[in-house]
Amino acid sequence: MTPILDVRNLKQHFVINRNLTIPAVDDVTFSVERGEVFGIVGETGSGKSTIARSVLGIYPITSGEIYFKGNEISGKNVSKDIRKDAACNMQIIFQDSAAALNPSMRVEKIIAEPMEIQKVYQNKDEMEARISEVLKQVGLSELHRKKYPSELSGGMRQRVAIARSIAINPDLIIADEPIASLDVSIQAQIVTLFQHLQKEHNFSFIFIAHDLSMVKFLSDRILVMLKGKAVELGRTEELFANPIHPYTKALLSSAPVPDPDYEKSRVRDEYDTSKFTGRGVFTEVSPGHYVLVEE
């Protein structure tokens, strides 16, 4: 079966001026299977969000290819149908829900907007019914329909953002740090919601976060990024049991665990990221487990 998303040798270089080009994403290859939760982790500025935006076509990519359901969507000669299919079936959820939702629109209008743009429903009643349905799916009630984003709490706003993204039944949802700005107990609520939605509708998910414990909990496979390079990729169990790249080791060993005895006795691996050159080959060391072998 073709993967839902196939990214090959993606490069996203931002040209600042003649002397300065920032390689935000450099030669990254991965694919996301249907119904899979794919986690991307890495430090600030490692290119996680840039990948998300490049895939969605927010930035025109420097080079490389992106295939969505087997069709190329990154080049210049993409047919209208394919472009529309990609636009309908890929949705993003951002970290800051206050910035992502239009403050002057009511919740119902926010959720209806993608359906109106993609002309999913011709009939107003059908659309109204769909709005009620997704509101219920994300755990909001009819009372919230007429509210403005500013009248809702952070957790509820994030639910509205999720409702908007699932309204037109996409195949792939990209969640860019969707829980980073939420409280611990609300984080758990939103993650549980993701799990339910994913099980019910079999969405594919790209879950971007810096909170390793959450990524581990949710993802089937994890990609570790550093300075725009893919450093390691593997199944979650494999990656946590057998990390190979020193940066992955450092990252895993510094993620805090709520267990005082374990925390006090554990030894941290250190890795000096300034020594990272990024030159090397992304090699498969065991089936499905890739590591950047540095020169």
Binding site: I186, Q189, V191, T192, Q195, K216, F217, V257, P258
Partner: peptide, 22 residues
């Protein structure tokens, strides 16, 4: 509630027991 909201204390694929409400 705070502890069971933490993903490290739950098996993968299991369910976080979040605190309801706000």
């Amino acid at each position: 509630g705070l502890m069971s909201s933490h993903p490290s204390l739950v098996k993968r694929g299991g369910e976080l027991k979040s605190i309801p409400g706000m």
